[in-house]
Design a protein around this nucleic acid. Structure first.
Lengths: 344, 344
DNA sequence: ATCGTTGCCGGGAACGATTGCATTTTTTTT
DNA sequence: AAAAAAAATGCAATCGTTCCCGGCAACGAT
């Protein structure tokens, strides 16, 4: 049951050349006569010869591929980002290997190590919500593996980073609710230690402060599984419902948490869910269909994927060690569906 | 800028053994003394040695990985199927390489050939809607590459296949609309030549026939881009709206087309959209939130991915050429949200 | 004392491709 | 026509690993 391929040797044998001649003819080496080149190229074409990328990877110690680690591809943000990544990578001659951590630290480590041992030329990663300790990444980075962070970044490693303007997103989403007349605004968000959590929370707080609304700690719910587990969101919603002074609006800081919260509201108290104002991060293309309706903070996922990939390829192809790193911040977009600002 | 790794040679040099001895000690070869094994293993552990999978792939001409080709990972069905694939593959020691065709034939060919040249041990594929000619797959299959089809299969290649019970899905979705009191039932579906299109159409027709409703060709819209292009769906909806006798219900045969149709209805004629009955294939987790509401045909995507992977691994690991192939058909699930059958 | 076993280990080819250097062939120069 | 220069091609090492084969010691049996 072994899959047959044709090699440079087969060509050499069939044509009576040495493998070196064939190799050079195929890459158009200047030292090979036009005649020989023609013969070799024609024959290679005829038998549909394809160079073995594995042999090349072994020899050159690079694979012309980049590894991607995301939490889950089913998340709209990540699948769009991956499309952006692929769009750049393919045009630059790189293949993309996608892996999922499922928000699990151990899985993330396994994925990264596997990618590294497969000689990926570089790594694009958005950290899992469980990942507090990233020393494993640090050591890989120090050994020379080019890494670019996107979305969920870490301070601990000095390299390129691409993020959305999370502060802006949080601020605008919150301020929109305030301007729509809501004052008791709850906040559902990710695990507390993530960069995106901090930044979006800051935006939320800044909007409250600007409009002289006091910050209320009991209105903030940290969901460590990032909405991957519906029960966690149900519990958060129940907590909110139990409050003597319920929020009259919610700002939700993540894609999956947004949809999970809408589902929970529908299930637990639809009337309340339809009464309150809801704004939240999501890159879902079907958000306009949602009921209860939601005002959307959309991240430029595709562009983020593209820019991260451009930075990574620049790192990979740089002749000299790079020491100057940049953090690109892309603006989010607030999309209001007419039905949301119904208090106006 | 090259990434350093430790090899079996480093161990051999440090310990004064030959590479052969080290290699055998690491795999626990019987011909190596316990003492030597201990020394080698301890040292390997100490320097965190990891065998180079690329060298292994080159030598063994297999990579312990399986390639997956889907149309787009952003599609709920496929991302769930991929989770099923990974769940089995990882437990069996295989890595999964995911690629997207974006419903584009040329891209599909490129992806498959790249996967094959990377020595994937087998291939899981759901055909793109553009793929009519699959001779390239055929020749790969004849050369010995194990292939398992899922979801969108082809008759032309005799191998294992895993599909949903598309006839049943189409039948139940249509009959549900009929039983809810609708009689003029339109049908939006994929490109006509796809296996899933035929089967779901058959189910639709069978339900109509059972209830003595005449089949109306002008009620059927084939969307060759599978909902990837919103304009195509918008056009289909406009066509329907222009009919002197508009459908009072729609059965939609695919995930993306379902959501695109809902978006189009919202945009073009929300009142009509909310009045008609809609049932459709989708694996979206947020379908309960949709408005207009939709009765859902859900495919067992995760299980389909799992079963396809099990079949593929059986093929890969089979000692003898396999000649008996099976087609597994998994039942779909009809999920009615209370609000849909409002004619009752 | 010699032979066959057994246990342990090293040498080296192989996987497919590239590449520096050596070698052969052809062409040009004198 | 001989020598030098140029062009075309081959040899062999390399990447990291496995595995066939052969070597060598120690030991028991003859």
């Amino acid at each position: 049951m072994r899959f047959e391929t044709t090699t440079i040797k087969d060509i050499a044998k069939a044509l009576g050349f040495s493998t070196s001649t064939v190799s050079r003819a195929l890459r158009g080496g200047y030292e090979i006569s036009e005649e020989t080149k023609r013969i070799v190229l024609e024959y290679a074409e005829k038998i549909n010869y394809r160079p073995n990328p594995i042999a090349l990877s072994l020899k050159e110690r690079r694979s012309h591929s980049i590894g991607v680690v995301v939490c889950e591809i089913a998340n709209n943000f990540f699948s769009q980002a991956i499309n952006g990544i692929e769009s750049i990578a393919y045009n630059s001659g790189y293949h993309v290997i996608i892996t999922q951590s499922n928000e699990n630290h151990e899985r993330e480590v396994l994925n990264v190590e596997h990618l590294a041992s497969r000689s990926v030329d570089g790594l694009l990663i958005s950290l899992s919500s469980e990942s507090n300790d990233i020393s494993y990444l640090k050591s890989l980075h120090e050994k020379g593996l080019p890494i670019v962070f996107f979305d969920r970044v870490s301070e601990e490693i000095n390299t390129h980073k691409v993020i959305a303007n999370n502060f802006q997103g949080g601020f605008e989403a919150t301020e929109f609710l305030i301007k729509s007349g809501y004052t008791k605004i709850g906040h559902f968000t990710n695990a507390a230690h993530l960069s995106i959590t901090r930044e979006r929370l800051e935006g939320y707080k800044a909007a409250l402060e600007k409009h002289q609304i006091p910050f209320n700690e009991s209105y903030v719910k940290y969901c460590s599984y990032s909405g991957l587990i519906q029960d966690e969101i149900d519990a958060a919603v129940k907590d909110i419902l139990k409050l003597k002074e319920r929020p009259d609006a919610l700002f939700i800081a993540q894609d999956k948490i947004s949809t999970s919260t809408l589902l929970a509201l529908r299930k637990l108290d639809l009337e309340y869910g339809c009464k309150i104002g809801i704004s939240g991060f999501t890159n879902s293309n079907v958000a306009p269909l949602f009921s209860p309706p939601i005002t959307v903070v959309r991240q430029p996922a595709f562009e983020m994927g593209q820019q991260a990939t451009q930075l990574l390829i620049k790192l990979i192809e740089s002749k000299h060690p790079v020491t100057e790193f940049e953090t690109k911040t892309l603006n989010t977009q607030l999309i209001t569906h007419s039905s949301t600002n119904r208090k106006l």
